[in-house]
């Protein structure tokens, strides 16, 4: 047989694992050869002999010799991932799919709406964008979590807020005594923004219910359907547009997505599941 084997993973050394919240950990890895990807693309991570699942990296797409992935414990493979410690070897296939078309964001207000572990892929997007910060008019970050302790990347937010073109707003569903920021669902943050919504682009990533109501609010505020970018969660298994698990109407989300504009998918079945 000749040619590249699309089913065979590259090997990544797991250097360390950091706990972000009770259910979420970040895995720091080094690839066997430099690994190139675009922000918004995803990879399939294999735990040897256990299984494979899709994740979007949470580290910058500018960095080729290291990769970080933040993973919530949700099913069988993620549970096994959470049991791993530094020194193990993981398999990675990819990158797969279509990422964010950053060139279309240039010169514009960019609204980034994220919730829960959906902040992980948005960290990759933000780190990638901030490398060329001046290309964007302003980056408005609206992040939500259930409680203050559920926010991942706690140490990162200070760095983020210090960027001159960044506006950072955070909210929690349920505040505690020390919380001085907003309380309420993540869409309330959108109402605080002073932005020309008709000209802005927006990126949404999070749990399906947040994606749905976040998108509907953005549209109400005037963001154009073709300027709302959604990162869709489906059961991506092969990543190659073959196995059928992530079919959504006439798209294979793994190959045609996972990033779609609202305009592209609004008439498709089960977009919010």
């Amino acid at each position: 047989m000749q040619g590249k084997n699309i089913y065979k993973p590259l090997l990544f050394k797991l250097n360390k694992v950091e706990t972000e919240s009770p259910l979420i950990k970040t895995f720091f890895m080094t690839p066997e050869i430099p690994f190139d990807f675009k922000t918004g693309q995803f990879v399939e991570v294999t735990v040897d002999g256990v299984g494979e699942a899709p994740y979007t990296p949470s580290s910058s797409a500018w960095v080729k010799d290291k990769m970080e992935i933040t993973i919530m414990k949700a099913g069988y493979v993620t549970q096994k991932m959470h049991e791993l410690k530094g020194g193990k070897v993981l398999g990675i296939r990819g990158p797969f799919g279509r990422g964010y078309p950053l060139e279309k964001f240039h010169g514009k207000d960019v609204i980034i709406l994220g919730g829960g572990v959906g902040i992980a892929p948005l960290r990759c997007l933000l780190l990638t964008m901030l490398q060329e910060e001046d290309k964007f008019k302003k980056i408005h970050i609206c992040f939500g979590a259930k409680t203050p302790s559920d926010f991942i990347y706690k140490d990162w937010f200070k760095d983020l807020a210090a960027h001159k073109r960044v506006e950072l707003l955070r909210t929690v569903d349920k505040a505690d005594g020390d919380w001085k920021e907003t309380e309420g669902v993540v869409t309330v943050l959108l109402d605080k923004l002073q932005v020309d919504f008709k000209e802005a682009v927006a990126v949404v990533c999070g749990p399906p219910i947040m994606m749905k109501f976040g998108t509907l609010r953005l549209l109400e505020l005037g963001v154009q359907e073709e300027n709302v970018y959604l990162s869709m969660e489906k059961n991506m298994s092969c990543g190659l547009g073959k196995c059928g698990h992530c079919a959504m109407g006439d798209y294979f989300v793994c190959k045609d997505g996972p990033v779609f504009t609202y305009n592209e998918i609004k008439n498709h079945p089960n977009i919010w599941m």
Binding site: Y7, P9, L11, T46, D48, G49, E52, C238, K242, H245
Partner: peptide, 14 residues
């Protein structure tokens, strides 16, 4: 019908 599942075996075989 072409749908399939990748089942993992040891040594990163599928």
């Amino acid at each position: 019908c072409h749908c399939f599942l990748l089942i993992d075996k040891k040594n990163f075989e599928k």
